[in-house]
Each structure stands twice: as C-alpha cells, then as structure tokens.
Design a protein around this nucleic acid. Structure first.
Lengths: 134, 134
DNA sequence: CTAGGTGCAAACTGTTTGCAACCCT
DNA sequence: AGGGTTGCAAACAGTTTGCACCTAG
C-alpha cells in the first residue's frame, strides 16, 4: 500500500484501506462507516469522506454513482478487477459484471472522440435474477 | 404529449414538459427551476421533483447520475435522441455523444446476462476539449 | 516538536414530505 | 363538487467544513 505520495499513515486511513482492499464491489460511505465500527475500528464520518476524497484524487479508488441515491467507492485495481454494475430497479441490489466486447467498443470510441478519456462507468438498469423470477 | 395515463394536465406539468421537450441534453432539477422562472412559468421545487418522479415512472424521462453531485433528467426520445455523456473532470461540462458500436456491444451483452436489462447509462470521464487544450 | 491526521458537531445542499389552498374535469 | 395538483415551509439524508485535539515521523 504505497500511499507514500507525500502522505502519512494514520490509523483511520489504514483501517479504511484494509477494508476497501478486502471488498470485491463498491461500498457507500455509510456502509464503510458501519463496517469499520463492526470491525472495532470506528472512524469518524468526516474522516471517511476526507480519506475517500484523497484516495480518489490519487486514483486509488473510484467514485461511482450507481443507483440514484448515495455515492459508492471502490478500489481501482490493475485491470483484473475492472468491472461495471447492474442495478436492480426493483430491489436495489447491485451486481458487478465484465464484458470484453464493451471494453473494446469503449476503447475504440475513446480514439474517435476529440478528448482524453480517463475513466468510464457503465450502469445497466433492469430486474435482477430473483426479482425477474418472482 | 400523451400523459393521459390516468393523469391530469396542470400548468406546472405542462410548463415542465414543454421545457424538457425543447432541451437536447440532461437538465438538473435546479436548472429546471431556474429556466422555468426565467420563462415566467415559476414552478415550486417540490412540484418539479414530484413531476419528474412521475414522468420517470412512466418512462417519459430518464434520471441520469452523471457527474458526482446532483441528478439530471432528460426525455427518453424514441431512439434518435438516445445518447450518453462525457463529463469533464476539470470543469464539469457535460457533452452528449452517441456510438453505434457501444450500443451493439450492450445489446449483445444484454442477451448474455441472465437478467432483463431495461436501460443503460454510460458516463465517460476525462478532459473536455477546452480543458485539454488549455 | 510540529505538520498533518482525526473526531465531533454544526453547517450545507439536494431531495422529500405534510398540509392547506387550488384548479382541471 | 371533488380529487388530483400545486406551493410553501419544514423535515431529511448524505456530504462538507470549522475547530480543537492527537499522533506519526
């Protein structure tokens, strides 16, 4: 965890990084606060937002606006972890997925556009498996 | 404007629909309120949100979470109006774009996934033309 | 020792809700 | 006339900020 980009360690920061690293999909700030409290590493709300903001600037986490309510954050892993989200409009469940064809299309599109595309975020809306079945 | 899905007309609703129809890209609730006030058709904040919520349920407008702050709304036109958004991380400008390859990829992906995909939303992050140039 | 990190509580902002007045039909 | 519709203001939730304390280096 090379957050040595001119930053100190600090317990809150460490706890948050460990939590994020153990997660596979996006977490909201509230969920993070709750998880940390459960794990006996309580961290103030303010610190959570401040740290996440910092990590985002360092491109270590990405803020994703899946769903319609609160923001979610997830670590930007090297590529094997790259995925997108399917949100169930019925129950709100968020499911990650990957698709090579989609990535190719975006790559090609990026070349066509007269801008520098740094990140992309894809959100599919629909009914998740359990809701579609019911 | 066939909002006759069991709903009445009302001036606020009419004014909002007319405004949305004249726009080409997504508007935020605050922008909508401002625009309506400018056009001498002031509509209460609450009504704006209520109407937008209703229109979304009727699939006449789509709520898009572009950027990181407030929600934006735009009419769901038959297909010619379908587009996605590129948001400049530097100045916040939002630019619409379309890409057939992307749509194809999503269509194919939808078939592969074990869920019913109703809508999709793609947001590219990067630097817009003016920011990249500066 | 001291600059940066942290927690608390108050301030902010976008969104929602309660309620009384209003106006299409 | 009557129920959906609207506006106002207060309530909410997530996020941000001010400030005093603390801790890593």
């Amino acid at each position: 965890m090379l957050a040595q980009s001119g930053h100190r360690s600090g317990q809150a920061r460490r706890a948050l990084l460990e939590l994020l690293d153990s997660q596979t999909c996006a977490l909201s700030a509230v969920e993070i606060e709750h998880e940390l409290r459960e794990g006996n590493r309580p961290v103030g709300r303010a610190s959570i937002y401040r740290i996440l903001d910092e990590l985002e600037r360092l491109h270590l986490v990405q803020k994703v606006q899946v769903g319609q309510d609160m923001a979610r954050y997830e670590p930007t892993r090297a590529g094997d972890g790259h995925h997108h989200h399917l949100v169930c409009d019925n129950c709100g469940t968020i499911t990650p997925f990957t698709d090579a064809g989609l990535e190719d299309a975006i790559l090609e599109l990026s070349r066509r556009l007269p801008v520098r595309v740094a990140e992309h975020e894809i959100v599919l809306h629909g009914d998740c498996q359990s809701c579609a079945a019911g």
